[in-house]
Design a binder for these strands. Structure first.
Lengths: 107, 107
DNA sequence: AATTAACATCGTAATATTGCAATATATAAA
DNA sequence: TTTATATATTGCAATATTACGATGTTAATT
Protein backbone atom coordinates (compact mmCIF):
# COMPACT_ATOMS: atom_id res chain seq x y z
CA UNK A 1 0.00 0.00 0.00
CA UNK A 2 0.93 3.65 -0.03
CA UNK A 3 0.48 3.77 -3.79
CA UNK A 4 -2.23 5.93 -5.25
CA UNK A 5 -4.43 3.71 -7.43
CA UNK A 6 -4.31 5.92 -10.50
CA UNK A 7 -5.64 3.14 -12.72
CA UNK A 8 -9.14 3.38 -11.29
CA UNK A 9 -9.49 7.05 -12.19
CA UNK A 10 -9.89 8.84 -15.49
CA UNK A 11 -6.99 10.58 -17.18
CA UNK A 12 -8.68 13.88 -16.53
CA UNK A 13 -9.01 13.15 -12.82
CA UNK A 14 -5.38 12.11 -12.57
CA UNK A 15 -4.19 15.16 -14.49
CA UNK A 16 -6.22 17.55 -12.39
CA UNK A 17 -4.97 15.94 -9.19
CA UNK A 18 -1.41 16.14 -10.48
CA UNK A 19 -1.64 19.90 -11.05
CA UNK A 20 -3.13 20.41 -7.63
CA UNK A 21 -0.50 18.20 -6.06
CA UNK A 22 2.43 20.07 -7.57
CA UNK A 23 0.95 23.36 -6.38
CA UNK A 24 0.32 21.81 -2.97
CA UNK A 25 3.55 22.81 -1.28
CA UNK A 26 4.22 26.24 0.22
CA UNK A 27 7.76 26.35 -1.19
CA UNK A 28 6.42 25.92 -4.70
CA UNK A 29 3.74 28.55 -4.14
CA UNK A 30 6.43 30.88 -2.81
CA UNK A 31 8.74 30.17 -5.74
CA UNK A 32 6.03 31.02 -8.25
CA UNK A 33 5.15 34.21 -6.41
CA UNK A 34 8.78 35.27 -6.19
CA UNK A 35 9.52 34.62 -9.84
CA UNK A 36 6.39 36.52 -10.77
CA UNK A 37 7.40 39.53 -8.68
CA UNK A 38 10.89 39.59 -10.10
CA UNK A 39 9.84 39.26 -13.71
CA UNK A 40 13.03 37.28 -14.03
CA UNK A 41 14.79 34.84 -11.86
CA UNK A 42 18.05 33.27 -11.05
CA UNK A 43 17.95 30.20 -8.91
CA UNK A 44 20.56 31.34 -6.41
CA UNK A 45 18.27 34.22 -5.45
CA UNK A 46 15.62 31.70 -4.55
CA UNK A 47 17.86 29.87 -2.11
CA UNK A 48 18.35 33.06 -0.11
CA UNK A 49 14.82 34.26 -0.60
CA UNK A 50 13.00 31.08 0.33
CA UNK A 51 15.37 29.76 2.96
CA UNK A 52 15.74 26.16 1.87
CA UNK A 53 18.93 24.43 0.78
CA UNK A 54 20.00 24.74 -2.84
CA UNK A 55 19.35 21.06 -3.51
CA UNK A 56 15.84 21.38 -2.16
CA UNK A 57 15.00 24.42 -4.27
CA UNK A 58 16.35 22.68 -7.34
CA UNK A 59 14.07 19.75 -6.61
CA UNK A 60 10.99 21.95 -6.28
CA UNK A 61 11.86 23.74 -9.51
CA UNK A 62 12.04 20.38 -11.22
CA UNK A 63 8.53 19.51 -10.09
CA UNK A 64 7.17 22.82 -11.32
CA UNK A 65 8.85 22.15 -14.64
CA UNK A 66 7.36 18.65 -14.76
CA UNK A 67 3.86 20.05 -15.31
CA UNK A 68 5.14 22.73 -17.64
CA UNK A 69 4.50 25.66 -15.32
CA UNK A 70 8.10 26.83 -15.44
CA UNK A 71 10.53 26.97 -18.27
CA UNK A 72 14.21 27.43 -17.63
CA UNK A 73 16.71 28.96 -19.97
CA UNK A 74 20.44 28.85 -19.49
CA UNK A 75 21.78 32.36 -19.17
CA UNK A 76 25.51 32.36 -18.95
CA UNK A 77 26.43 30.30 -15.97
CA UNK A 78 23.13 30.76 -14.20
CA UNK A 79 19.55 29.83 -15.04
CA UNK A 80 16.60 32.03 -15.89
CA UNK A 81 13.47 30.28 -14.69
CA UNK A 82 10.29 31.85 -15.96
CA UNK A 83 6.62 31.13 -15.70
CA UNK A 84 5.24 29.58 -18.85
CA UNK A 85 2.31 31.92 -19.32
CA UNK A 86 0.49 29.81 -21.88
CA UNK A 87 0.65 26.73 -19.71
CA UNK A 88 -0.21 28.80 -16.66
CA UNK A 89 -3.40 30.10 -18.24
CA UNK A 90 -4.25 26.68 -19.60
CA UNK A 91 -4.03 25.11 -16.15
CA UNK A 92 -5.94 27.97 -14.56
CA UNK A 93 -8.66 27.39 -17.12
CA UNK A 94 -8.79 23.66 -16.42
CA UNK A 95 -9.00 24.20 -12.69
CA UNK A 96 -11.77 26.75 -13.14
CA UNK A 97 -13.71 24.39 -15.37
CA UNK A 98 -13.45 21.79 -12.63
CA UNK A 99 -14.58 24.28 -10.01
CA UNK A 100 -17.49 25.53 -12.09
CA UNK A 101 -18.71 22.09 -13.06
CA UNK A 102 -18.50 20.79 -9.52
CA UNK A 103 -20.75 23.30 -7.93
CA UNK A 104 -24.18 21.77 -7.49
CA UNK A 105 -25.40 20.71 -4.14
CA UNK A 106 -28.21 19.19 -2.08
CA UNK A 107 -28.30 20.58 1.45
CA UNK B 1 13.56 15.41 7.60
CA UNK B 2 10.47 14.74 5.58
CA UNK B 3 8.73 17.61 7.33
CA UNK B 4 7.57 20.59 5.35
CA UNK B 5 9.05 23.72 6.89
CA UNK B 6 5.80 25.64 7.17
CA UNK B 7 7.34 28.15 9.57
CA UNK B 8 9.39 29.81 6.84
CA UNK B 9 6.34 30.60 4.71
CA UNK B 10 3.51 33.07 5.13
CA UNK B 11 0.11 31.98 6.38
CA UNK B 12 -1.32 32.74 2.97
CA UNK B 13 1.25 30.56 1.25
CA UNK B 14 0.62 27.70 3.63
CA UNK B 15 -3.14 28.00 3.26
CA UNK B 16 -3.00 28.08 -0.50
CA UNK B 17 -0.71 25.07 -0.56
CA UNK B 18 -3.03 23.25 1.82
CA UNK B 19 -6.03 23.73 -0.48
CA UNK B 20 -4.04 22.55 -3.46
CA UNK B 21 -2.72 19.60 -1.53
CA UNK B 22 -6.14 18.38 -0.44
CA UNK B 23 -7.35 18.60 -4.03
CA UNK B 24 -4.20 16.85 -5.18
CA UNK B 25 -5.48 13.30 -5.12
CA UNK B 26 -7.57 11.73 -7.89
CA UNK B 27 -9.88 10.02 -5.40
CA UNK B 28 -10.77 13.36 -3.86
CA UNK B 29 -11.31 14.93 -7.27
CA UNK B 30 -13.53 11.98 -8.18
CA UNK B 31 -15.46 12.22 -4.92
CA UNK B 32 -16.21 15.90 -5.48
CA UNK B 33 -17.29 15.27 -9.05
CA UNK B 34 -19.53 12.39 -8.03
CA UNK B 35 -21.20 14.29 -5.21
CA UNK B 36 -21.76 17.19 -7.57
CA UNK B 37 -23.37 14.99 -10.19
CA UNK B 38 -25.64 13.31 -7.67
CA UNK B 39 -26.77 16.50 -6.01
CA UNK B 40 -26.79 14.36 -2.89
CA UNK B 41 -24.59 11.66 -1.56
CA UNK B 42 -24.43 8.71 0.71
CA UNK B 43 -21.00 7.41 1.56
CA UNK B 44 -21.72 3.78 0.71
CA UNK B 45 -22.45 4.82 -2.88
CA UNK B 46 -18.96 6.27 -3.07
CA UNK B 47 -17.32 3.01 -2.08
CA UNK B 48 -18.94 1.26 -5.02
CA UNK B 49 -18.56 4.18 -7.36
CA UNK B 50 -14.91 4.99 -6.71
CA UNK B 51 -13.63 1.50 -6.04
CA UNK B 52 -11.63 2.04 -2.88
CA UNK B 53 -12.26 0.43 0.50
CA UNK B 54 -14.78 2.03 2.83
CA UNK B 55 -12.10 3.04 5.30
CA UNK B 56 -10.13 4.75 2.56
CA UNK B 57 -13.12 6.70 1.26
CA UNK B 58 -13.92 7.77 4.78
CA UNK B 59 -10.38 9.07 5.19
CA UNK B 60 -10.54 11.08 1.97
CA UNK B 61 -13.90 12.55 3.00
CA UNK B 62 -12.32 13.62 6.25
CA UNK B 63 -9.60 15.52 4.41
CA UNK B 64 -12.11 17.27 2.20
CA UNK B 65 -14.02 18.23 5.32
CA UNK B 66 -10.82 19.51 6.95
CA UNK B 67 -10.63 22.46 4.55
CA UNK B 68 -14.39 22.98 4.71
CA UNK B 69 -15.12 21.86 1.16
CA UNK B 70 -17.59 19.24 2.31
CA UNK B 71 -20.15 19.31 5.02
CA UNK B 72 -21.76 16.11 6.24
CA UNK B 73 -25.16 15.76 7.78
CA UNK B 74 -26.42 12.67 9.49
CA UNK B 75 -29.47 11.39 7.68
CA UNK B 76 -30.95 8.50 9.56
CA UNK B 77 -28.26 5.88 9.74
CA UNK B 78 -26.39 7.12 6.71
CA UNK B 79 -24.58 10.34 5.94
CA UNK B 80 -25.37 13.07 3.47
CA UNK B 81 -22.11 14.64 2.33
CA UNK B 82 -22.56 17.83 0.38
CA UNK B 83 -20.32 20.42 -1.17
CA UNK B 84 -20.17 23.57 0.91
CA UNK B 85 -20.91 26.02 -1.88
CA UNK B 86 -19.85 29.11 -0.01
CA UNK B 87 -16.52 27.63 0.92
CA UNK B 88 -16.16 26.19 -2.55
CA UNK B 89 -16.56 29.61 -4.17
CA UNK B 90 -14.32 31.20 -1.59
CA UNK B 91 -11.50 28.77 -2.32
CA UNK B 92 -12.00 29.08 -6.06
CA UNK B 93 -11.70 32.83 -5.67
CA UNK B 94 -8.51 32.55 -3.64
CA UNK B 95 -6.93 30.21 -6.15
CA UNK B 96 -7.87 32.53 -9.01
CA UNK B 97 -6.41 35.49 -7.19
CA UNK B 98 -3.19 33.55 -6.85
CA UNK B 99 -3.23 32.61 -10.53
CA UNK B 100 -3.97 36.14 -11.68
CA UNK B 101 -1.38 37.76 -9.47
CA UNK B 102 1.29 35.30 -10.46
CA UNK B 103 1.22 35.87 -14.15
CA UNK B 104 4.04 38.16 -15.11
CA UNK B 105 7.05 36.90 -16.90
CA UNK B 106 10.43 37.68 -18.40
CA UNK B 107 11.29 35.37 -21.29
C1' DA C 1 -32.46 -6.22 23.69
C1' DA C 2 -30.44 -8.15 19.69
C1' DT C 3 -29.43 -7.37 14.91
C1' DT C 4 -28.28 -4.94 10.96
C1' DA C 5 -26.54 -1.07 8.25
C1' DA C 6 -23.59 2.83 7.53
C1' DC C 7 -19.83 5.14 8.76
C1' DA C 8 -15.67 6.37 11.62
C1' DT C 9 -11.45 5.25 13.76
C1' DC C 10 -7.29 2.52 14.79
C1' DG C 11 -3.32 0.06 13.62
C1' DT C 12 -0.18 -1.10 10.33
C1' DA C 13 2.36 -2.08 5.90
C1' DA C 14 3.91 -0.09 1.68
C1' DT C 15 5.25 3.75 -0.71
C1' DA C 16 5.95 8.86 -1.43
C1' DT C 17 7.67 13.27 -0.12
C1' DT C 18 10.70 16.52 2.04
C1' DG C 19 15.13 18.21 3.02
C1' DC C 20 20.00 18.21 2.99
C1' DA C 21 25.01 17.02 2.48
C1' DA C 22 27.96 15.43 -0.82
C1' DT C 23 29.08 15.16 -5.32
C1' DA C 24 28.68 15.86 -10.34
C1' DT C 25 28.30 18.99 -14.23
C1' DA C 26 28.76 23.01 -16.93
C1' DT C 27 30.11 27.58 -17.98
C1' DA C 28 32.64 31.88 -17.22
C1' DA C 29 36.67 34.01 -15.60
C1' DA C 30 41.45 34.20 -14.55
C1' DT D 1 43.89 24.87 -17.98
C1' DT D 2 42.87 25.85 -13.40
C1' DT D 3 39.50 28.04 -10.52
C1' DA D 4 35.22 29.81 -9.17
C1' DT D 5 30.26 29.99 -9.58
C1' DA D 6 25.69 28.21 -10.42
C1' DT D 7 22.77 24.58 -10.73
C1' DA D 8 21.61 19.44 -11.04
C1' DT D 9 21.79 14.88 -9.31
C1' DT D 10 22.48 11.23 -5.93
C1' DG D 11 21.90 9.00 -1.65
C1' DC D 12 19.88 8.87 2.53
C1' DA D 13 17.22 9.83 6.94
C1' DA D 14 12.92 11.51 8.75
C1' DT D 15 8.29 12.05 8.16
C1' DA D 16 3.82 11.93 5.50
C1' DT D 17 0.46 9.68 2.71
C1' DT D 18 -2.20 5.95 0.89
C1' DA D 19 -4.74 1.91 1.47
C1' DC D 20 -7.05 -1.61 3.98
C1' DG D 21 -8.54 -5.05 7.57
C1' DA D 22 -10.30 -5.04 12.00
C1' DT D 23 -12.88 -2.96 15.24
C1' DG D 24 -15.89 0.91 17.33
C1' DT D 25 -19.93 3.64 17.20
C1' DT D 26 -24.52 5.04 16.28
C1' DA D 27 -29.14 4.67 14.80
C1' DA D 28 -32.88 2.21 12.59
C1' DT D 29 -35.11 -2.25 12.44
C1' DT D 30 -36.76 -6.47 14.20
Amino acid sequence: MGVTKTEIFTGQQNDLAQFFKVLGHPARVAILQYISNQNACICSDLVEEIGLAQATISQHLKELKSIGLLKGEIEGKSMCYCINIERWSQIQHQLNTFFNKTKSNCC
